[in-house]
């Protein structure tokens, strides 16, 4: 092989040589004084090259290396689906949380809590026999979110008792529309349930003339129709935020390791989320989250915000706290 010409030298330095041509060049340069001097000269001029060009050369060189086989790419979604099914089968508790209407939750609270060991085997039995719903578990009680609904609606008699096996309805048919328009408890899969819930709200709003939210005058003076959704179960934070605040929300508060239980997004860029241990976070730009101090280290189960400064937070034991200054002060209601 002859000595390197300028073009071959440049292509080699940019990582564009491969195969037999590359091996020929290497074997020649290994024994050629002139070509080695060319390498040295190119090396001495490295500092004059703008950084992007060097990076491009490096990335091109990397890209020209043999790539891993791509024909296994189809296995990625298949593996993900198999993992999801395995998790779904292995953790029956998540999918067996009963649908709780706002009116039913106080009844649950009045009932005695079941023994701690009871939920696990019974929910497994529930997996194979769906006609027999499990008794309410403590998590369901804690995460049920009736507290965002007005007390009058919470006492509505139309809600079926959650413990009646034959009355365990599908989520779309259980509560009256007037009840669903205010608040609902979701169960997995969360995004689908949320879409369904929003559709139900849209359908329910004009059909409830007696409801305060159906009254235009009242709606104009009261808080806007805030989305208040309580989530049971544990999901990855990112997907959870999308569920709590809306599909376009993606970033989750990075400093929250525990479960977030509820969220409320009164406007496209504002969302409040609450969780266990008195966690309250607020975003006013749709991207970053602010820590909002809460007076008690108690589990929070619901939030209903009217704007970036005003929100009502409900604790798991049924108390409500309201702030109208972005969380600087809280008043118990």
């Amino acid at each position: 092989m002859n000595c390197l010409d300028a073009e071959t030298l440049a292509v080699w330095f940019d990582g564009g040589l491969n195969g037999a041509a590359l091996e020929d060049v290497r074997s020649h340069v290994a024994g050629c004084d002139r070509c080695q001097m060319l390498l040295g000269a190119m090396g001495r001029t490295r500092a004059v090259v703008p950084a992007p060009v060097q990076e491009r050369a490096a990335s091109f060189a990397k890209a020209s290396e043999p790539k891993p086989r791509r024909w296994l790419a189809w296995a990625i979604p298949l593996t993900a689906a198999a993992t999801a099914i395995a998790v779904w089968v292995a953790i029956p508790e998540q999918r067996n949380v009963p649908v709780v209407t706002p009116a039913a939750a106080p009844e649950e609270k009045r009932e005695a809590a079941p023994p701690p060991a009871a939920p696990q085997p019974e929910t497994r039995q529930e997996t194979t026999a769906p006609a027999v719903p499990p008794p309410p578990v403590p998590r369901a009680q804690r995460n049920a979110a009736p507290l965002t609904a007005p007390p009058a609606r919470a006492a509505a008699p139309a809600a079926p008792p959650p413990t009646a096996p034959s009355q365990a309805p599908p989520p779309a048919a259980a509560p009256p529309q007037a009840e669903r328009s205010a608040s609902a408890t979701l169960r997995a899969p969360l995004p689908e349930a949320r879409v369904l819930d929003q559709q139900q709200r849209a359908a329910a709003a004009p059909a409830a003339p007696g409801d305060a939210r159906g009254n235009d005058a009242a709606a104009s003076t009261q808080a806007p129709l805030a989305e208040s959704i309580t989530v049971t179960g544990e999901t990855p934070q990112g997907a959870l935020i999308a569920t709590l605040c809306g599909p376009r929300w993606r970033s989750a508060p990075s400093d929250v390791t525990g479960a977030l239980t509820a969220g409320s997004s009164p406007s496209p860029n504002v969302c409040w989320v609450v969780g266990a241990g008195g966690v309250v976070r607020r975003s006013t730009n749709g991207q970053t989250w602010q820590r909002v101090p809460f007076p008690e280290m108690t589990d929070l189960s619901g939030v209903q915000a009217s704007d970036a400064r005003s929100a009502t937070v409900t604790t798991a034991d049924g108390r409500s706290f309201r702030t109208s200054d972005g969380g600087m002060t809280w008043a118990r209601q």
């Binding site: 440049a10 940019d14 060009v53 050369a57």
Partner: peptide, 16 residues
């Protein structure tokens, strides 16, 4: 011929 970047080619011509 565009097989490398223009700046690398210029350096190579000069080095040569």
């Amino acid at each position: 011929h565009g097989r490398s970047s223009l700046s690398t080619w210029l350096r190579a011509v000069l080095a040569q």
